[in-house]
Simulated scan of single mutants.
Amino acid sequence: MADKLERYRSKRDPARTPEPVPDAPSPTPGGNAFVVQEHHARSLHWDLRLERDGVLVSWAVPKGLPADPGTNHLAVHTEDHPMEYLTFHGEIPQGEYGGGTMTVWDTGTYDVEKWADREVKFVLHGKRASGRFVLFQTRGKNWMIHRMDGAARDPFPPLEPMLPTRRTKIPKDASAYAFEFAWGGRRLLVPIDGGRTDASREHPWLRGLAESFGSRTAVLDGELATLGGAELLVFYDLLYDDGHSLTARPYTERRAALEALNLTGARWQTAPAWPGEAEPVRQAAREQGLPGVVAKRLDSPYEPGPSKSWLLLPP
Rank of each mutant, 00 (worst) to 15 (best):
L232N: 04
P306M: 07
L48C: 02
A210T: 07
N32G: 14
M148H: 08
T197A: 03
V112A: 15
T78M: 11
A295N: 01
R49D: 03
R297N: 05
T71W: 01
D149Q: 10
T264Y: 05
G64L: 05
V190S: 08
A33Y: 12
S58R: 01
P157V: 03
P272W: 00
F235M: 07
R12F: 11
D80M: 07
I92H: 06
D154M: 07
Y177L: 09
P14A: 05
V134W: 01
P93C: 05
P82G: 05
D237T: 04
E91Y: 07
D3M: 09
D117T: 10
H81I: 06
L239T: 03
E253Y: 10
G243A: 06
R153P: 01
G54N: 12
P20C: 08
L163R: 13
N142L: 12
S300T: 13
E96N: 14
M144W: 07
A218N: 06
N32M: 02
A230C: 07
E79N: 09
A248C: 03
G289W: 05
Q37D: 03
H40P: 01
A285N: 01
A116P: 04
Q137M: 12
G229Q: 10
A225T: 13
E287W: 04
T217Q: 12
E6P: 01
V21Y: 04
A271N: 03
H39L: 07
W268N: 05
W115A: 15
R297G: 06
H125M: 02
K121W: 09
L238W: 02
F122P: 01
R9G: 02
G54H: 09
D111L: 13
F181A: 06
L239E: 02
D111H: 08
V104Y: 01
D117Q: 10
S43Y: 04
W59S: 06
K121E: 14
P82I: 04
L312W: 02
P191D: 13
T107G: 14
L163I: 12
E38G: 10
G208P: 00
Q137A: 14
T270R: 03
M162C: 05
L246K: 03
A182C: 09
G214N: 03
L232Y: 00
D117K: 09
I145Q: 00
T264A: 15
T264E: 15
L238P: 02
L74K: 14
T71R: 15
A295F: 01
T71I: 14
G99D: 05
T264H: 14
A174W: 07
G195N: 02
H81Q: 11
F88C: 11
V35K: 00
T252V: 14
W205R: 13
F122I: 05
F133K: 11
E119Q: 15
A260G: 11
R167V: 09
D237A: 02
P18H: 08
Y85G: 01
P164R: 12
E259N: 15
Y8I: 04
P191C: 10
T217P: 01
V112Q: 09
P22V: 02
D241M: 02
Y302T: 02
A199E: 04
F88L: 12
